[in-house]
Design a protein around this nucleic acid. Structure first.
Length: 588
RNA sequence: GCGCCUGUAGCUCAGCUGGAUAGAGCAACGGACUUCUAAUCCGUAGGCCGCAGGUUCGAAUCCUGCCAGGCGUACCA
């Protein structure tokens, strides 16, 4: 009997009793958990029956419960006001839940709701003129987690990275390096490629302040690039490749991966072609200044103060393309190349208007799939004044933060290893999982719409509602399993009837709820639900751990039952952390 | 001005498809390691759920108005 079947059994029983009491079989009841495990294991509120039966929820609960008796599944039935609280025999409750989890393994919590659906998650989307920063890390953590959530629910996921590799900002670092670089390279300077290029971008800004004429030189360089001037294109390729090498290192370290890369240098021309065709079909028109524009429908966008329809410019008078021009093309390429059922864009909330316009234009161009495009918008990451400034300006550099977190984690590990038994490799391997886990968890633990006030002290904490706290619970379980004598976890020996104290019940409740939370998280594209639930699971385990021995429990059957319970817990913790992009450790 | 988001404990946030006494982490204070890793656990304290109306048997949750902050408001990305 699975957890689902257990719930169905309860529904059936209540349905029967309701039929006896009122001649009415309810269809809208929901099963939940009582606030206090002592009330029971499951709770059913009778509010939805109040209207059809025209009686108070309390009376309904009382009269239904009167018609119910215990059986081989239900141990006890209690009424508390409008709630029917049920206790299930512990051997059934713990036994069935553990068996369900073991049978599903790391598939526990997943489902097949997305089977046959192909979905693209575009995320990160950096510019190639400077290194990644904290905002990119939030984007990356979100994109990766949402991808894994979709995979866990049966979707075929294509992870995409859209690289903004052309434009005047790219030319700035090119020009600066050409002028003052003196042939230096990332190798010669011992710098990551993206940091090296970013340095020239900053240099340009400094020089341009002194000498404004540089701005027009950059424009000239952009024109050379668009004209395909070989030396300019060569320079562009060289510097972009340096950046890609640097990004690749950061992706690898932060655990981000992609199935496909799109480059705006590839799509911006296609964008122009699509606009041309759209002009012929009257989707676009020219305004007085010579811009090619799209008029936004009044119903959804309203109008300008002057009473005219709002409009989006899709081509400048000189025929050069804009951000949205390229995005129109990329959106179309994505769908046609990958036959998508759904296309997700993980991009900050400051671009909400942009995406509303983009999807509107795609619709107007006749692409019905535009309604299956979704902008996964997330809030900004704000920095406290004056803190964590890097030399390059008021940003938190992604690589610096990752390094700093690993150093802190390594310090913590050494504190726990005063005799210096651990090899340096082992310390570093653990520090990487812990440090990166801390960052990802910190960025994912609030819902995407919330902006994050980056608090350096809190972000580096390993206590409380953090990734390392959850990882530690897993490591503790592993520690117990490693010390268990051979055969101690023989499940034939496990007497689940001996389980049922409040700590065990709370822990079990978290294991039962996990699949539902995965479902909610996917439905809302909201990994924070997983973060919260995994934290609560880890906390429930720690509470149990602190109060009840596992290996030293009174008898073998109890040891085996508790081992099964914590093995099931380990599966849920690992799976949940995986959905957030965190790795587990067997020792911390 | 208009649009979207946010406002819950000193701080950071859950709860927002209405239901059992509003929860958690951090910070503060007090406890628990000869016992499966104390990166842990237990306890204390801390709240006109931004304000005002309305709907409801019942509102942090839904509706209206207002206040405060953030983002956006298109020829930047």
């Amino acid at each position: 009997m699975s957890v689902e079947q257990l719930k169905n059994t309860i529904f059936a029983k209540i349905g029967n009793a309701s039929a006896k009491a009122f001649g009415h079989v309810p269809d809208a009841l929901e099963i939940g958990f009582p606030p206090n495990p002592e009330f029971g294991h499951f709770a059913v509120g009778c509010f939805p029956l109040a209207k059809p039966l025209r009686r108070s929820p309390s009376e309904i609960a009382r009269r239904i419960a009167e018609k119910m008796t215990g059986d081989e599944v239900i141990q006890e039935i209690n009424v508390a006001g409008p709630y029917i609280n049920l206790k299930v025999w512990p051997q059934v409750l713990f036994g069935e839940v553990c068996r369900t989890i073991f049978a599903a393994g790391e598939g526990y919590g997943g489902s097949a709701v997305g089977r046959g659906k192909r979905v693209m998650v575009e995320y990160l989307s950096p510019n190639t003129n400077k290194p990644l920063h904290l905002g990119h890390l939030r984007n990356g953590a979100l994109g990766m987690s949402v991808s894994r959530l979709l995979e866990a629910t049966g979707h075929a996921v294509v992870k995409a990275n859209l690289i903004n590799d052309r434009g005047v900002h790219i030319c700035k670092s090119m020009l600066a390096w050409q002028e003052w670089g003196g042939g230096s390279t990332p190798e010669s300077e011992g710098l990551k490629g993206d940091h090296f290029v970013g340095r020239w971008y900053v240099r340009f800004a400094q020089e341009a302040e002194k000498k404004p004429a540089l701005e027009s030189e950059v424009q000239k360089m952009l024109q050379s690039w668009e004209a395909g001037d070989p030396p300019t294109v060569k320079l562009w390729e060289t510097m972009n490749n340096w950046v890609y090498d640097g990004f690749a290192q950061t992706y690898r370290q932060f655990g981000l991966d992609f199935d496909v890369f799109y480059y705006e240098s590839d799509t911006y021309k296609l964008g122009k072609d699509i606009i041309q065709k759209g002009i012929e079909t009257n989707v676009f028109s020219k305004d007085k200044q010579g811009n090619t524009v799209f008029h936004l429908p009044f119903d959804e966008f309203g109008q300008e103060k002057g009473g005219e329809l709002k409009k989006v410019t899709v081509l400048r008078p000189d025929g050069t393309s804009l951000y949205i021009t390229q995005d129109i093309a990329t959106s179309i390429v994505k769908v046609t190349e990958h036959n998508l059922d759904f296309s997700i864009y993980v991009v900050g909330s400051e671009q909400e208007y942009h995406f509303r316009c983009l999807f509107e234009i795609l619709s107007a161009l006749g692409y019905g799939w535009a309604q299956h495009c979704y902008h996964l918008s997330y809030g900004m990451v704000y920095l406290p004044e004056g803190k964590m400034k890097s030399r390059e300006g008021k940003i938190v550099d992604a690589d610096d933060l990752i390094d700093a977190m690993q150093v802190l984690a390594a310090d913590e590990i050494r504190q726990r290893d005063p005799e210096g038994r651990l090899a340096l490799d082992e310390i570093n391997a653990r520090a990487e999982k812990i440090g990166i886990g801390a960052i990802k968890f910190y960025l994912l633990r609030v819902r995407p719409t919330q902006s994050i006030n980056f608090d350096p002290a809190e972000s580096i904490s390993f206590d409380g509602f953090t990734g390392p706290y959850c990882q530690y619970a897993y490591a503790r379980i592993f520690g117990i399993l490693a010390k268990a004598p051979p055969g101690a976890d023989d499940r034939q020996q496990a007497a689940f009837a001996l389980l049922g104290n409040p700590e065990e019940l709370l822990l079990l409740q978290k294991l039962i709820q996990f699949p539902e939370e995965v479902n909610n998280a996917v439905g809302e594209f909201n990994p924070s639900r997983i973060a919260l639930h995994i934290f609560n699971t880890a906390k429930a385990f720690n509470q149990f751990y602190n109060k009840h021995p596992v290996l030293h429990a009174a008898d073998k059957q109890l040891v085996a039952a508790r081992l099964a319970l914590i093995q099931a817990t380990a599966i849920v913790l690992k799976k949940g952390l995986h959905l957030l992009g965190l790795e587990v450790l067997e020792n911390m």
